[in-house]
Every structure is written in structure tokens, then in C-alpha cells.
Write a protein that binds this DNA or RNA. Sequence first.
RNA 1: GGGGAGAUACUCAAGCGGUCAACGAGGGCAGACUGUAAAUCUGCUGGCUACGCCUUCGUAGGUUCGAAUCCUGCUCUCCCCA
Length: 422
Amino acid sequence: MNFVEELKWRGMIHDIMPGTQEQFAKEMTSAYIGFDPTADSLHIGSLVQIMILVHLQKAGHKPVALVGGATGMVGDPSGKSKERNLLDEETLNHNLKCMQAQLEKFLDFDCGENSAEVVNNFDWFKEFSFLDFIRDVGKHMSVNYMMAKDSVKSRLETGMSFTEFSYQLVQGYDFYWLWKNKKCMVQLGGSDQWGNIVTGTELIRRKGGGQAFAVTTPLIKKADGGKFGKTEEGNVWLDKTKTSPYKFYQFWLNSSDEDAKNYIKIFTLKSQEEINSIITEHEQAPHLRVLQKALADEVTTRVHSAEDLEMAIKASNILFGKSTADDLKSLDEDTFLSVFDGVPQFEVSANDFNCGIVDFTVEKTQVFGSKGEARRMLKSNAVSINKEKVNEEKQISSTDLISNKYILVQKGKKNYFLIILK
RNA sequence: GGGGAGAUACUCAAGCGGUCAACGAGGGCAGACUGUAAAUCUGCUGGCUACGCCUUCGUAGGUUCGAAUCCUGCUCUCCCCA
């Protein structure tokens, strides 16, 4: 199956420029996606773009991942209702380094002519002076054209700086540069990037007299209209120190039936037949959640590792299985600790005991952010100690310790915290 | 440069001298139901040494017994004219 068809059945194409498919059919083609260095880790939103590059390489083409050292200094107005804050250079460089390391995990950088490549647009912008830029690049684009972009139009009312207004030209020049110097024919990206991408193909047409192509992916949303990739704590990151493999696994496992059917096509490499059979199986026995498990297994393995997955499953079974306080107590210490590796942990000392549950969860540990919150939770029957519901009267003493060392605190059904006596 | 409008909690948005920790909506969190799903119903959504107290309505002052509400300076944003 060719690249474009593969993306099509997976529901990963939002828009595609005429002629793109023919280009991919004609020859081994390089295509690139830009990643914005706004944080020091990629999150699962960028995972969609990464998967596109993976498919691209599998189809025999050359993936180029661009990290935006230069564009990151400007700030993309697309989809933003407010002017962005600029990052300082140090943060930016740190972010770039981290992101690059993550990207390298997903692609093959040593497989002959379609080896992946990571480029940084700062490399070609650092020597490019402002005057040169407005003469060589700006001259080809009319303000009228730039103003017609949605990303600009929607900001005309509320205002936008010249910096952000110029963003599309900067990104457009990236495409031009890659086209000119690396024969990169296609730019891929999220649907919000369409305007920026087209500026690039226009620049290539006007300045370079050539042709280039584009494919964009739809914005992923949850079935209920909510934002994809957010949890109570915020973004789901690919960096395991920011989102533990256990939490990562849980994120996918918790997706709704509706969502999981879409996600499995986008985030796994399973074939159409495999996916259909998993969905059929799931519909026959939805409570087994075969679908969510298949999804969570594969994504966790790709982003982390088989070992991380194993521990995440083990932890999940213990935390969400039918286990009781007694089961917890019967675990040996090693298993116990490794199971809870991904669960937020707090350390206490022996004299932190013998106090009320509220003090214990707020002051001795930071399970809850304030006493008010702790009381609210307790009142709504949301707190468990070692899998047993407790109320505001509960006193914590050393008899609550498991293996004389641990206490398991639970907020609601899904949020666990491990307290360790040190 | 001239004129006008505005800034309220996570977001939108009421309030226009006391009864305001601030209506409402969205979002979020929790409870029940379930399949660690969806839908639905319910509760909560500034902090505390908690029938009371403290800190919040762009910012700094002022008027007043009393201010988110009135006055003044400042900052920022938007609109119109040049």
C-alpha cells in the first residue's frame, strides 16, 4: 500500500495538495515536518506527526524532522488567540536538544538513501540578515496574500505583533530552503499548518520556479469534543520523567470506545485487518477492553519499552484488579516497589504518624493541594487508604503501614499515591 | 496626534456603594451507575487554627462608617478619526 493510501484509511489526511500522490508514486521523495520547541519534551499531540514520518519511511520515502530553532524564536500565531511569549535562547536550546533525542527514537537513521534526518532551521537562519531576508524573501510575498491567511485574519481584531505576522514567511522559507538544498518536495503537518505550508509552496513557485506539495493531518479531538492528550495533570509527555510509563499506559487504556477506534489507526502500525478484528472482538465483549489494551500496549512499547509496558500492566492489574488490602500486604517488597514505580510518591519519617488524615495528606505529604481540597474529597467519599475508604475522622498511625514501610493513598478511582517511610 | 470603549476567579461572562468569595455558562474534580468506557443523575470548584477569620475583581493611591462597584494617576488592550 502506498504512503497516501495508508494515511487515508487511517484517517490521517485532512487536506492534500493536488499532485502530491503522483509525486510519491514517481520517486523516493523527502518530506518534512516541523516541531515547535515550546517545551523540553514532545507530547502525544506530536506523536501523530511522528507516526506520519514513520509511515513515510516505511513506504520507502525519506523523513526529515525539522526542529524549529529559528521559528521557535518567532512564535507561530496559528490557532493562537493571543500573542505568544518568547522563549529565551537558553531554554530554546535545551528544548531543541531534548526533542531531537526523542525524535531519534522513532525513525531509522541508518537505512541507506531513505535514512531519516533531523535538521534545525536555525542553521540557515543564523547567517541570514534581516535586510537580506526582506529583500530576498519578503519581496516575493504580498502583504495582501499574507493577510488573507486564517491565522492572521482571526487576529486582526485582537491584534498581533509584526513578529508573529512574519512567522509564515519564516516557515515558508524553511520549506523553500529544504526544497532547494535537500530536494525536499513535501511538507507534512497538522491542519493548522496549512496556511504556513502553502506560503512555502508559493514561495517555491515564485522564487524558485518549482513545485512542492503538502499533506496535513486532522486535528485530533475526543468524541465528546474535548481536547486530545490532556489529563488532570496536563499534557501527556513522551519523556518518562514527565509522564511515567504507568501513567502513559493508563492514558491510552482509559480512552473511550469511540476514541480508541480512531486512535488505534493513528497511533499503531497494525494493519487494517488486524484492527478490524480487534474492533469486532471488542464489540462482542466490551468489558474486556481488548481494544484499549491493544492500543495502550503498542503505543507504550514504541514510546517507552517492552519492560516499561510489562511493569505498567502489572501495576494496573494490582491497582485496578480485585486486589484488597491483604493482597497488597502479601506482595514482596521488590514487586511492590517496581509496581509503584510510576505512581507519584512521597516520603515521610516515623514521627509524621499519629495525625489526622487531613494533615497527613496535605502537610506531611502533598497528595492534596490544600486542606479545603482534602476535606472536600473526604466528604465526597473519594479517599482510600490501602484500598479502604476513609472519612475525615481517620487517624494515620504506623499500623496502616504495609510491610512496615508503605501507605497507599487513593484519590477517586484512578489516582494513586505512594507514601514511603524512610 | 485626536476621540471612544474596556481590563472581574481556569475560560466566557454578570455585578455598578453595603445582603459579594462575587449570578450564570463552559471546563475541571469527585460520588452513584458501569467495563478503569460513553450517556445520565448528584455534589464540589480562593485560603485558614472554619457557625468565625484572611486574601482576591489590571495596578498604585484617594473619597466613604463601608468599594469589584465612586474619584485620580499608571500599565495594558481594542475601536474610530488623522
